[in-house]
C-alpha cells in the first residue's frame, strides 16, 4: 500500500475526479480520445527512460531524437527519392547510433550521462535544424502499410484511437515483463542499486547500459515518427522539452532518480497523470501559459510524498 506507484495511482484518480467534476467535457469520448492520441508518444519514451533510470543513467537527448528521426526520414524520401521503408530503416539505424554513442561514452570513458546526453541533445537538435534549414517538412501521408502501422486509427464506439496506443500497450507489457520477471530486469535493478556488486557477480553492467541507451534512443525515434505521421508534418523543433517531461513522468510514477528502483506501472500512471494535467488544466480554464506552474507544483508535491512515504517505511523497520 505504501509503494510509490500506489500513491501515484491514488493521486491520479483524485486528479481525474477533480477535472471531471470541474468540467463535464473532461471525460467525454472526444477528450479521452484526444488524450489517448498524445499519451503513447511521450509514454513510449518514458518506458525506455524508466529502464535506463533504473540502471542508474538517464538520457536528455530523447526530445531531440524525437525531432531528428522523422526529419531525416522525410528528407531521404522527399529529396533523395528513397523508398519510405528504407528511409524508416535508416532513421532507425541513426537512433541506434545515437544511443550507442551515448552509452559508450558514458560507460567506457566514464563521463556522467547528464553531461554526455546534454551535449548530444545540442548536437542532435542542431543537426535537425541545420539539415532542414529550420523549416518543417510535410510528412509522408500516402495511405499504406507504414502509415497504418504507425498512425492508423480505429473507432471503438464513440472513441477514436490510434495504432500508437497498441504500440504503447505492447511495449508496456514487454517492459513490465523485462523489469519484473526476466533475468535482464534483475541485472538492470542490480546495476542501478550497486554497480560494483553487480559487476562482482559477473553481470555485464556496461553492455546492459549501452543497450538501454540504444533502446531509449530507438523508442524516442519511434515516438517521433508516430507523431510526425499522425500530424503529417515533421518539424525540426518537435519534441523540444520532452526530455524533462518524460523524466518527470518516470519519477512521478515512483522510479528512483538515483537508480535501483524502477516501476513500469508507476511510469504508466505518471504518463497518464501528466497527460491528464496538461489536458485538464486547459479545460478548467487555467491560462495555457500558467500550465508549467501547475505541472511543476504537482511534480514537486508527488516527489515530497514519495520521500515522506519512504521515510516512514524506513522507520517502521
Amino acid at each position: 500500500m505504501r509503494s510509490p506507484q500506489f500513491s501515484s495511482f491514488v493521486i491520479l484518480i483524485v486528479l481525474l475526479v477533480v477535472f471531471a467534476v470541474a468540467d463535464g467535457n473532461f471525460l467525454s469520448p472526444l477528450n479521452i480520445s484526444n488524450m489517448m492520441a498524445f499519451l503513447p508518444e511521450l509514454g513510449i519514451i518514458a518506458l525506455g527512460m524508466t529502464l535506463l533510470l533504473t540502471a542508474g543513467e538517464f538520457d536528455l537527448s530523447v526530445g531531440a531524437v524525437f525531432g531528428l528521426a522523422p526529419v531525416v526520414v522525410m528528407l531521404l524520401v522527399q529529396n533523395a527519392g528513397v523508398d519510405i521503408g528504407v528511409a524508416l530503416l535508416a532513421g532507425l539505424l541513426l537512433c541506434i547510433a545515437i544511443g550507442a554513442i551515448n552509452g559508450v561514452i558514458v560507460t567506457k570513458i566514464g563521463i556522467s550521462s547528464f553531461l554526455v546526453t546534454l551535449s548530444m541533445l545540442l548536437i542532435v537538435r542542431g543537426a535537425a535544424l541545420y539539415i532542414t534549414q529550420g523549416f518543417p517538412l510535410k510528412s509522408w501521408d500516402q495511405p499504406g502499410f507504414f502509415v497504418t502501422l504507425l498512425a492508423g486509427s480505429f473507432n471503438v464506439g464513440a472513441f477514436r484511437f490510434y495504432t500508437s496506443l497498441w504500440w504503447f500497450i505492447g511495449l508496456s507489457l514487454f517492459a513490465v515483463y523485462v523489469l519484473r520477471y526476466a533475468k535482464l530486469g534483475n541485472w538492470i535493478s542490480a546495476i542501478g542499486s550497486n554497480r560494483n556488486a553487480a559487476v562482482a557477480r559477473g553481470v555485464p553492467a556496461d553492455a546492459v547500459k549501452v543497450w538501454l541507451f540504444i533502446l531509449t534512443s530507438v523508442l524516442a525515434g519511434l515516438a517521433g515518427m508516430i507523431s510526425a505521421f499522425r500530424i503529417s508534418a515533421a518539424s525540426p523543433v518537435a519534441g523540444t522539452g520532452y526530455e524533462l517531461e518524460v523524466i518527470a513522468m518516470v519519477v512521478v510514477g515512483g522510479t528512483a532518480l538515483t537508480g535501483g528502483r524502477g516501476t513500469i506501472l508507476g511510469t504508466i500512471v505518471g504518463a497518464l497523470m501528466l497527460r491528464a494535467i496538461r489536458n485538464g488544466i486547459v479545460l478548467v480554464g487555467v491560462p495555457g501559459l500558467a500550465y508549467n506552474i501547475f505541472v511543476g507544483v504537482i511534480i514537486l508535491a508527488m516527489l515530497i510524498l514519495h520521500a515522506l512515504l519512504q521515510k516512514s517505511a524506513a522507520r517502521s523497520w
Binding site: G192, S193, A197, R261
Partner: peptide
Amino acid sequence: TSLAPDLSIARN
C-alpha cells in the same frame, strides 16, 4: 559492496 540494497535477499 557485495549486495544490491534495492533487491530482495533471494534475488541477491
